[in-house]
Simulated scan of single mutants.
Amino acid sequence: MKTLQFIAVSFCFLAIVGCKNEPKKETIKSEKVAEKAKTYAEISIAEGGKWIDGTRGHEEYDGGTSFKNVTNLRVPDKHTDHTWYIRYEGPGWESNKVGYRLYLDWRNAIDIFGKKTDSMVLSKVGQDGFDSYHEPEAWGQDILKVGSGLGVGSIGRLVNDKMFHFKEVDSTFASIENGAKQSSITIDYHGWKTADDKIDLKSTLSIQPDSRITKHTIIPSKEINGIVTGVIDHKVAYFAKESDNKKWGYIATYGIQTLVPDNLGMAVFYKTDDASEVKKGEFDYLVEFKPTTKPIEFYFLGAWEQEPNGIKTQEEFLKYLDDKLLELNNNNKF
Rank of each mutant, 00 (worst) to 15 (best):
N21P: 01
E42I: 09
A303R: 01
W51Y: 05
D262K: 15
I251W: 02
K38D: 06
G90K: 00
S184R: 05
K68W: 05
K25V: 11
L201P: 01
H58C: 05
K115H: 05
W192T: 07
T292P: 07
D131F: 14
L286D: 00
G126S: 03
K235C: 07
V169M: 01
I86V: 05
G48L: 08
Y103T: 03
G49H: 07
P295C: 07
R101H: 05
D284H: 03
K162T: 12
Y285C: 01
K280Y: 09
G179F: 10
Q127F: 02
D210R: 10
I207P: 01
F334E: 03
K280C: 04
A240I: 06
Q5L: 15
E277A: 15
Q257W: 08
G265R: 01
V146G: 02
K215Y: 03
A109G: 14
G191W: 09
N331C: 07
F6P: 04
G57Y: 08
S211M: 13
P209C: 13
T71D: 14
I207D: 00
V152G: 07
E22F: 15
G48M: 09
V146I: 12
T172K: 05
I224H: 00
V287M: 08
V70F: 04
E223N: 14
D170N: 13
E94Q: 11
G179C: 10
K247T: 08
N108W: 06
D77T: 13
I218E: 02
E223T: 14
I232F: 00
L73G: 04
S119M: 12
F13I: 15
V33M: 12
C12F: 15
K29R: 12
V260K: 11
P220R: 02
N21A: 13
K333Y: 09
A267D: 07
K222V: 08
V231P: 00
F283S: 10
I187T: 10
K145I: 09
T117L: 07
T39P: 02
K167V: 09
D62K: 10
G230E: 00
S154W: 03
G179Y: 11
Y61P: 01
V228D: 00
E35N: 13
S95I: 04
T39M: 04
E94N: 06
F269C: 09
A15S: 15
L264P: 01
